[in-house]
Design a protein around this nucleic acid. Structure first.
Length: 499
RNA sequence: GGCGCCUUGGUGUAGUUGGUUAACACGCCGCCCUCUCAAGGCGGAGACCACGAGUUCAAGUCUCGUAGGCGCUACCA
């Protein structure tokens, strides 16, 4: 039987990086096994689901490069009738029953407390949390009350005795006593709305899912779902649960508490490379058998294995106070690593998009100035971390309008008053250099420094700030060569005013 | 409250069937290179392998217990 997996996000917000990793793992598994990768949008919660979320999830998957779904996208809300039909079939077969108990109001805020309190009270009074007066109501009576218009929920009849068990491909053998499982609600009493556990199972059956790969937060509920598969007479798929990705304080990552670091689109918007972020994500909760960490998509597909997935949760190491560490330093490092080592052919399209967005792109970069452009990118990418750096600190290479770093001015220009006269003079010298190359510029600058009785370093550092607005950057003579004779001279002259 | 899962340096991890100076990557510190900053090279700090017992000649690796973290427990998904 061929492998069929799915990624099933609920569109109640942006694409969370944990969800993105689930999507990636599903995708990797499908591609490796030559199976199908499907997408199902779980939009059954009409109040919380939004089209905008769906769009952003789709965009995120596209950015990651895992949007080649093998079949049409399934929207769960459109299958509600099938879910209902399945539930009523179970009622007919006596595997589920109508519960006429009025719905208990529960506020979203303190459900956890509610649950704990209810459990404590139940234990103290010695009541069986599974007892339900409607469980054994006669089918006739049940039907009569339903037809009379009395509202009811549909609950699965969970066996009183026995154990549920399954083999998780990551967490191993899992067991749970039926006594731990309540008769779960399949359909809500208001409008017979299908609930999550029912919907996933019915859809997974319908989509022919063979392997359910998802977050560990679903691990214990899997037993309930297996009960539904069995009641429906369907074969149970294989399950593989993934460890969670936690915040530095070990809490679950959430937008409310941790902000945009958890949103996948943030990485796209802040200049990350899909290849780098994908690579980083893959390493969160999984390691290849060899030591190599930098892997192309093809390598990931080849090396991926569910057996290599860890059981302990991983911490996403970012700082909320240090802007330089706004996200995991390793992700940043990996992005820089890719920026400086990947082929220009792969980098250029991404860079072009970034430059177009900030109005720095010129068509000539792909035609007459292609050579210059590539040389420049090669020179500056060496010390950049994200695509944003090309249009930020690298702006001076592509435009005459760029900002000067105040600290750089103070350090390299204001420190020596003689620069007021020397900089224009240096400009004059450089204008006469022929040909204008890395070597000739260096020779001219050093000669002029000697004549002027200053260290070459003074000119070099001042020039760096004059030409690029920065105090750091590539070897200065290469910068002269890149910026060119006229622009270099002009910038040296105008920088004299800063002195 | 109950049930389940997890626990190796700051972070991500490696540690095959018990015997290693506990390894690698990121981060951090220092040196080299040098016109600055990176990159690169070299070196360093940082883990009594959550804790406590037990088995054993020998335990990060096996057993039990404890603690902590996380998850689930809902007519949310």
């Amino acid at each position: 039987m061929s492998v069929r997996v799915r990624f099933a996000p609920s569109p109640t917000g942006y694409l969370h990086i944990g969800a993105a990793r689930s999507a990636l793992f599903n995708w990797l598994y499908a591609r490796q096994m030559g199976g199908k990768f499907l997408l199902r949008v779980e939009d059954t919660d009409a109040e919380r689901s939004t089209d905008e979320s769906t769009r952003s999830i789709l965009e995120g998957l596209k950015w990651l490069g895992i949007d080649d779904y093998d079949e049409e996208i399934v929207f769960q809300s459109r299958n509600a009738d099938k879910h209902r039909a399945a539930a009523f079939r179970l009622v007919e077969e006596g595997k589920a029953y109508r519960d006429f108990t009025p719905r208990a109001e529960r506020s979203d805020q303190n459900v956890k407390q509610d649950i704990a309190e209810r459990a404590r009270k139940g234990a103290a009074e010695g009541t069986d949390h599974r007892s339900n007066p409607f469980r054994d109501l006669s089918p006739e009576e049940s039907k009569r009350r339903a037809e009379a218009g009395e509202p009811f929920a549909v609950r699965l009849k969970v066996a009183r005795e026995g154990r549920s068990s399954f083999e998780d491909m990551v967490y191993g053998a899992q067991e749970r006593d039926y006594s731990e499982i309540e008769d779960l609600v399949l359909l809500r009493s208001d409008g017979a709305q299908p609930l999550y556990n029912l919907s996933v199972v019915v859809d997974d059956i319908e989509m022919g899912i063979t392997h359910v790969i998802r977050g560990q937060d679903h691990l214990t509920n899997t037993h309930k779902q297996i009960l539904i598969y069995e009641a429906l007479g369907a074969s149970v798929p294989a399950f593989a649960h993934l460890p969670l990705i936690l915040a530095p304080n070990k809490a679950k990552l959430s937008k409310r508490k941790h902000g945009e670091v958890v949103s996948l689109t943030t990485y796209r918007d802040r200049g990350f490379l899909p290849v780098a972020f994908r690579n980083f994500l893959a390493l969160l909760g999984w390691t290849p058998t060899d030591e190599r960490e930098l892997m192309s998509l093809a390598e990931l597909v080849e090396k991926f294995s569910l057996e290599g997935v860890h059981r302990s949760n991983a911490i996403f190491n970012f700082s909320e106070t240090d802007p330089r560490q706004w996200t995991d330093p390793k992700a940043l490092w990996m992005n820089a690593e890719y920026i400086r080592t990947m082929s220009l052919a792969e980098l250029l399209p991404l860079l072009r998009a970034e430059m177009e967005a900030s109005g720095l792109w010129r068509a000539e970069y792909e035609t007459t100035e292609r050579g210059w452009f590539e040389k420049t990118v090669n020179l500056i990418r060496e010390r950049f971390y994200t695509l944003k750096d090309f249009t930020g600190q690298g702006r001076a290479y592509f435009s005459d309008e760029f900002d000067f770093d105040e600290a750089a001015i103070a350090k390299n220009l204001k420190k020596e008053t003689r620069l007021r006269e020397l900089l224009p003079a240096l400009a004059g010298r450089l204008e006469k250099v022929e040909p204008f190359t890395i070597e000739t510029c260096e020779a001219a600058l050093r000669a002029f420094a000697e004549e002027s009785g200053v260290k070459a370093g003074l000119f070099i550092n001042a020039s760096r700030t004059a030409l690029t607005g920065q105090s750091v950057g590539p070897s200065m003579f290469e910068v002269f060569d890149i910026v060119g004779r006229e622009r270099a001279a002009a910038r040296l002259r105008s920088a004299a005013e800063f002195v």
